[in-house]
Design a protein around this nucleic acid. Sequence first.
DNA 1: GCCAACGTTGGC
DNA 2: GCCAACGTTGGC
Length: 138
Amino acid sequence: MTASHWLVKSEPATYAFADLQRDGRTVWDGVRNNAAALHLKAMKTGDSVFFYHSQEGLAVVGVAEVVREAYPDPSDPAGRFVAVELAPVRPLGRPVTLAAMKAEPALAGMAMLRQSRLSVSPVSPAEWATILRMAEGD
DNA sequence: GCCAACGTTGGC
DNA sequence: GCCAACGTTGGC
């Protein structure tokens, strides 16, 4: 069973990749969108996750991993949504900006580009490899 | 069950 | 600060 790949967005002013590195692990809660919640539910322990900074930075800045699979979101009193837990793996050698991703033909089909408001989205193996190459190549 | 109004996200 | 995308709500 090969691990899946994902991308999560966070506003760095609220919670940046550096905060995740400092904390060592965090609860990824507060997702209140059904499509995003479906993706959270599909995450498995050990899956890889790109950490994207929205609003400021506008770039994939690091890699994280799923350390706890979906469970009822403690911040949702109605009990409809789920949370997962993430741990930092490493920062990218060089952030991959939204502009660079849009300019890369291999990423034209990416879920996060096609639906910009989706805060949790799947990343295909090919897309994952492309972004890593953009971050570490040259 | 439809659809208009409204709220939120996020890029520019 | 504006606007597009899109999800949700509520009246009918």
